[in-house]
């Protein structure tokens, strides 16, 4: 069972200066599965997911205790952060394509990791856009500014961008909260396909979304994981009363 855990958090505490945002958080995220992190706003979900690819390193005044393991290795001591982020990609809440062309956006990752050959780049861009279910829509405007496409398309572009560096894990921090229902459902379909090849951890505010797409769910409340387990169990048979209260909408 342990070998199946792509990512594993062990007793993680996180402090913003004096304020403790994460208390003793432990969680296993299985390979090729979708793990959803749910909970009310400000409960540490985003903070936690950003620990996984060390994005919290760029924030000043952050102290982290505990270990996070990736493939059994400690992400702090056993990995160079660049290497880590190549393997663990991230899609953000608000689509953030660079102010460049569609092509350049997707080719950005491979380029900075040393791929210069034009033909290879063309291949990678096409593959990534196909995997992100965006190719057909943008194949005729590859060299036009990325900021000219719709929000939903931009988010899929960001996904393609992440896929282009060939990661093993894709972290998603509320990827559809800024999109319309149709784009949301397209991305949810996409996640379903992607999980065959990637491990996905997704933070979501939307319980229904979590219920639809995730295999495993963790419920965060005030910086603590209240309960985690298979999604069905959490939603239909939660052990903790708080969990049940959140699921049934009594707060949140």
């Amino acid at each position: 069972m342990v070998e199946n855990n792509k990512l594993s958090a062990k007793r993680v505490d996180l402090f913003y200066g004096d304020f403790q945002a994460l208390h003793d958080v432990s969680l296993n995220m299985e390979k090729n599965k979708v793990t959803a992190l749910i909970g009310p706003s400000g409960c540490g979900k985003s903070t936690f997911i950003r620990c996984l690819n060390r994005m919290n390193d760029v924030i000043e005044g952050v102290t982290i205790h505990g270990d996070i393991l990736y493939d059994g290795k400690n992400i702090r001591t056993d990995f160079d952060v660049i290497e880590l982020r190549k393997q663990i990609g991230m899609v953000f809440q608000k689509p953030n394509p660079f102010p460049m062309t569609v092509f350049e956006n997707v080719a950005y990752g491979p380029k900075i990791h040393g791929i210069k050959d034009k033909t290879r780049l063309d291949e990678i861009v096409e593959t990534s856009l196909r995997d992100a279910a965006l190719w057909d829509e943008v194949k005729d405007r590859l060299h036009k500014p990325a900021l000219g496409i719709s929000g939903g398309q931009q988010q899929r572009l960001c996904i393609a961008r992440v896929l282009a560096v060939n990661p093993e894990v894709v972290l998603m921090d509320e990827p559809t909260s800024a999109l319309d229902p149709i784009s949301t459902s397209r991305i949810e379909d996409l996640i379903d396909v992607l999980k065959r090849d990637y491990t996905i951890v997704i933070v979501t505010h939307n319980m229904q979304q979590a219920g639809r797409i995730s295999d495993k769910t963790a419920f965060f409340y005030q910086g603590v994981i209240v309960e985690d387990g298979p999604t069905e169990k959490i939603f239909f048979n939660p052990e903790n009363p708080q969990t049940e209260a959140y699921i049934t909408g009594k707060f949140g």
Binding site: I82, R85, K86, F92, I112, R161
Partner: peptide, 22 residues
């Protein structure tokens, strides 16, 4: 916007590359 910087860093770029290219 900071989101550009974050997006670039999350792809495994160094700070210098992010500044120079994005």
């Amino acid at each position: 916007p900071n989101t550009f910087r974050e997006g670039s860093l999350a792809l495994g770029a160094t700070k210098l590359t992010t500044i120079y290219k994005v």
